[in-house]
Nucleic acid binder design. Structure first.
Length: 594
RNA sequence: GGGGCGGUAGCUCAAUUGGUUAGAGUACCGGCUUGUCACGCCGGUGGUUGCGGGUUCGAUUCCCGUCCGCCUCGCCA
């Protein structure tokens, strides 16, 4: 085999006159007749043009060159020269070409079902791309994503290693975790009737590593949750998982801000600046969501007081509602000009959008030169002065409302705010808005189950100043949790953990876990906490989402080499599939298909 | 589990009110072509219209069921 000396995509005019050997795939083949054949040869680094000069070449080289087809794998030795026909500015290697002197056919290829060209890849159905993923991944765009992902994990390993983190592996076959997402389970052949679970995260193991004195831990690991996927969610995903001992909230946040700062410097030479903070309740009030996109305005304003003075039945009904001890609300977003895209039809469409979040609809109006016009103008006119004052309205502003239970109205406007920003095309390009969201409540009241549920997870510690009210006012107790938000997307979440066994027991009690239950489910953690657990806390970055932001895609499957479909299938390997009946016997499993 | 959109040539799509032999581009094959670069020109091969059933003289088209893919609500401590 001809020994490769250079990568196709790395050839430059500085190599003119040199003899080089490159290997790769035939990207395109342009036969010019008796005189010339051009091919673009592709490898991981890019394309370069290889020209076969048929008149100057021996007969066997010409004969072999004539048999080449797309996606054949070849090695070529030749001389680099400046292109006689002029440079191709579209290619990084466009100033030069290789004149082939030796050609070795390493493998032929059947005509591929799809071609690995970026220019028409966007049109190809994803189903086909996933089935022939090995061809799809040959595309420069996909190679760029895989490489970027690798640069990110390398940077993470370097940064955290420099800061004293040890990379430690935790088990994949673990005990099922009762709280949270649905587990993937694995039958235990050596224990008839018993099952392993695959980890939703290494949470408990990394805490125990802190008890074990490892001090600082890093793992880039797969996590598995058997829940329905979304455009930004897969059942199998990767976390950059971290934990630190002898730290408080500020220490973890500083360390992680440093990571983000360094990563953006490394990848974009971009200074993310100081990362601002926002409390959970501030985020919910102003943005209707716990991961606000602060790249644009459109903040949410509670106008319940003013709405109560109107004769609008929807407002009155909403304000009369009550749930989990919280009254109904009326909230509004002021949409300043230019807002011409918010036509009557678009605004009416928002009500349909709102219904997906169980809201009744989106009342709206517009402030004209002489008062409110359209929509619910007649109900707003009597409280015109107060609305103008509260929302800071000027003529031309559109106002959209949501009136419902607190959680529904908040969520609906939080989602609608983002939709309006997209519709008006006011989301700035090229902006990286990082934000720490802090001061989450410890618990959320579950009205159906009539119990408190942990908002983060039940190992999250209350903030140091909140221990006093943990028992007396669980609903008001704030945690030492923190989420790192980037452009409206949660890219990391973590907390200071409980290291005191009695506090852990209290939290379990509050979420309705009896001592017996806690012992059965988390006994090993409670035991570990007894034997000298240091104060500790950590965080986990969602690697897939991080890569999505960095390469600019809204499809999580684009950043995973071999992703699954929405039904959890791998179209290339056709997993999941049936197993041999003998495997069921061995694992003591009887399969019953409905 | 619910809602929405989609499935026609290897790929991307079209096909009038239910009506002749289901078309186009691209890919592929053959021929021509000495500076192309999404090469060009000429010709050709290529179809279980996702699958099953129904209505009809006749179904890609209408109806029922089902499978697959995407988006989404629930779900995702």
């Amino acid at each position: 085999m001809l020994k490769r000396t250079h990568m196709c995509g790395s050839l430059r005019s500085s190599l003119v006159g040199q003899t080089v050997t490159v290997s790769g795939w035939i990207n395109t083949y342009r036969d010019q007749g008796r005189g010339l054949i051009f091919t673009d040869l592709r490898d991981r680094e890019g394309l370069c043009q290889v020209v076969f000069d048929l008149e100057q070449s021996p007969a066997d080289l010409v004969a072999l060159a004539r048999t080449l087809r797309r996606e054949y794998v070849i090695a070529v030795t030749g001389t680099v020269r400046v292109r006689a026909g002029g440079a191709n500015p579209k290619l990084a290697t466009g100033e030069i070409e290789i004149v082939a002197e030796k050609l070795e056919l390493l493998n032929s290829a059947e005509p591929p079902p799809i071609l690995p060209d970026d220019h028409d890849a966007d049109k190809i159905g994803e189903e086909t791309r996933l089935k022939y993923r090995y061809i799809d991944l040959r595309r420069p765009r996909m190679q760029h994503i895989l490489r970027t992902r690798s640069r990110i994990t390398k940077f993470a390993r370097d940064y955290f290693s420099q800061n004293g983190f040890l990379e430690i592996e935790t088990p994949l076959l673990i005990k099922t975790t009762p709280e949270g997402a649905r587990d993937f389970i694995v039958p235990a052949r050596l224990h008839p009737g018993k099952w392993y679970a695959l980890p939703q995260s290494p949470q408990l193991f990394k805490q125990i590593l802190m008890v074990a004195g490892c001090d600082r831990y890093l793992q880039i690991c797969k996590c598995l949750r058997d829940e329905d996927p979304r455009a930004d969610r897969q059942a199998e995903f990767t976390q950059i998982d971290l934990e630190m001992s002898f730290v408080e909230r500020e220490d973890v946040m500083d360390m992680m801000t440093g990571f983000a700062r360094g990563l953006w410097k490394e990848l974009f030479n971009y200074d993310i600046g100081n990362v601002p903070r926002m409390s959970y309740w501030d985020a919910m009030e102003r943005y209707g969501i716990d991961r606000p996109d602060t790249r644009y305005g459109l903040e949410i304003c509670d106008v319940s007081d003013i709405a109560a003075k109107t004769e609008f039945g929807v407002f009155k009904d909403a304000l009369a509602k009550s749930k989990a001890g919280r009254k109904g609300v009326v909230k509004a977003i002021r949409v300043p000009a230019p807002n011409e895209k918010l036509t009557r039809k678009v605004l009416d469409g928002y009500s349909e959008f709102a219904k997906t979040f169980k809201a009744g609809g989106i009342p709206f109006t517009k402030l004209g030169a002489n008062g409110f016009e359209t929509g619910i103008a007649k109900f707003c006119e009597p409280v015109k002065a107060e609305l103008i004052e509260k929302l800071g309205l000027v003529a031309g502003d559109v106002v959209v409302f949501a009136a419902d239970h607190y959680d529904i109205a908040t969520k609906t406007l939080g989602e609608l705010r983002q939709k309006i920003a997209r519709d008006l095309e006011i989301v700035p390009e090229g902006k990286w808005n990082f934000l720490w969201v802090v001061d989450f409540p410890m618990f959320d009241w579950d009205d159906d189950g009539k119990r408190w549920v942990a908002l983060h997870h039940p190992f999250t510690s209350p903030n140091p100043d909140q221990f006093g009210i943990l028992g007396t006012d669980p609903g008001g107790c704030l945690s030492a949790g923190y989420d790192l938000v980037l452009n409206g997307s949660e890219i990391a979440g973590g907390s200071i953990r409980i290291h005191d066994q009695s506090v852990q027991a209290k939290v379990f009690e509050l979420i309705g876990l009896t001592q017996e239950d806690a012992k059965v489910k988390f006994g090993f953690l409670l035991d570990a906490l007894k034997y000298g657990a240091p104060p500790h806390g950590g965080i986990a970055f969602g690697l897939d989402r991080l890569v999505m932001h960095i390469v600019g895609t809204d499809n999580i499957r684009d950043v995973i080499a071999f992703p699954k479909t929405q039904s959890g299938a791998d179209l290339m390997t056709e997993a999941p599939g049936p197993v041999d009946p003998e495997q069921l016997v061995e694992t003591h499993v009887k399969s019953v298909v409905p």
